[in-house]
Design a protein around this nucleic acid. Sequence first.
DNA 1: ATTTATTTTTAGACAAAACTAAAAATAAAA
DNA 2: TTTTATTTTTAGTTTTGTCTAAAAATAAAT
Lengths: 215, 215
Amino acid sequence: MTISEENYIKVIYHLSLVSPKGVNTNAIAGMLDTKASSVTDMMKKLSDKDLVSYQKYQGVTLTDKGLHSAKMIVRKHRLWEVFLVDKLGFSWDEVHEIAEELEHIKSEQLINKLDAFLGFPVADPHGDPIPDAKGVIKKIEKQLLSEVEINASFHCVGVKDSSTDFLKYLDKQKIALGSIVKVIDKEDFDDTLTVEIDGKRLTISNKIANNLYVQ
Amino acid sequence: MTISEENYIKVIYHLSLVSPKGVNTNAIAGMLDTKASSVTDMMKKLSDKDLVSYQKYQGVTLTDKGLHSAKMIVRKHRLWEVFLVDKLGFSWDEVHEIAEELEHIKSEQLINKLDAFLGFPVADPHGDPIPDAKGVIKKIEKQLLSEVEINASFHCVGVKDSSTDFLKYLDKQKIALGSIVKVIDKEDFDDTLTVEIDGKRLTISNKIANNLYVQ
DNA sequence: ATTTATTTTTAGACAAAACTAAAAATAAAA
DNA sequence: TTTTATTTTTAGTTTTGTCTAAAAATAAAT
Ligand SMILES: [Mn+2]
Ligand SMILES: [Mn+2]
Ligand SMILES: [Mn+2]
Ligand SMILES: [Mn+2]
């Protein structure tokens, strides 16, 4: 599998989680910053290799083989992110790009040894679950902070948006994975929340609450 | 720079150490397992990018820019090898292939943080020197065991041949970097050596002694 | 100094992965 | 149910890196 093929497979995997009955050509093109025509070409190739099942105009789904490949790429991506943050001291907004390259290094032994070296982590620095060597993903229970009842306490377990901008905002507000969050009040008009994070009062918009997972 | 361009630059660098006045097209082709015509094509491209200076039929040399790029690739290759052996527990005969891929990951910050994480090593698992962030290579004093006087003591500091076969032979004989070697006797007829390695008597051929660096 | 052998370069072709522009199919609107 | 809009596919190029086969240059041998 080439790097390009792997990038396509991974994108189809991520899009499948939202649209399991078939992923659109345009959606793939958008994620990979390429043109729909290029996607069509690649779908034919991946279909020939039995990684996706593809019928013209009907969208695309991963085959069992494709799904397994996708999980292995995601596994590598997330393990490398853990390495970069835990061992090399990168911050959580700096690692995605580098992991985007590291995920294509081809050695099963490497990734399994890395996994052991990191202590078999179950989640990456953004709270996303890490598939094990067989592709099994341990589901992490979580809710969006925007959908949680008032006056209960939770702790942050992940982010939905992992863009640099959002992560840097969280850093600024001293919100990290593990922080204790209590929703004090919710404004009816615009769903703005008043929360207490690690004991500190804070007002956050619905957009923020809608991208933060708690448990 | 593409992965392919980087592989060419690195090979030219290694060959330059042996033939500093110009590297042959065929030599490059041999190292990269490609055809001479492909090499010629690439030399034109690298020349356009001012990474090599190239004149038809006259061989090729690295420019300052090319030399610096080459050293950075070698730096990455060797640092990753240290990581694989010291941190992940690979043996020294398993790391070359993987490092061959890792050396192409493009992040200066990554490699400098890796360097720090590893404690700024000066040599890789095969005893080869690691260029620092500026490209400076600390020369390691060393002699081939085959060229050393009799009855003096040395320690192993590197290998000339780092093929799996040779490294596994050394493992079998319990010869590692750091081992103490004393040459007891040299056979006039075929230069076979009788040596004492970490106190243990051993007979080794000239071919072996000719691929082992001591100091 | 020729002839012969080797090395290197050119010319032309191909596969991978992208693009543009146009055609075809599907979905949405009137 | 037509018409219109959107999505997707096809057709034809382009770039990168490779190849084979043939030509040209250099090196070695007679
Ligand atoms: Mn990637
Ligand atoms: Mn992540
Ligand atoms: Mn390489
Ligand atoms: Mn090495």
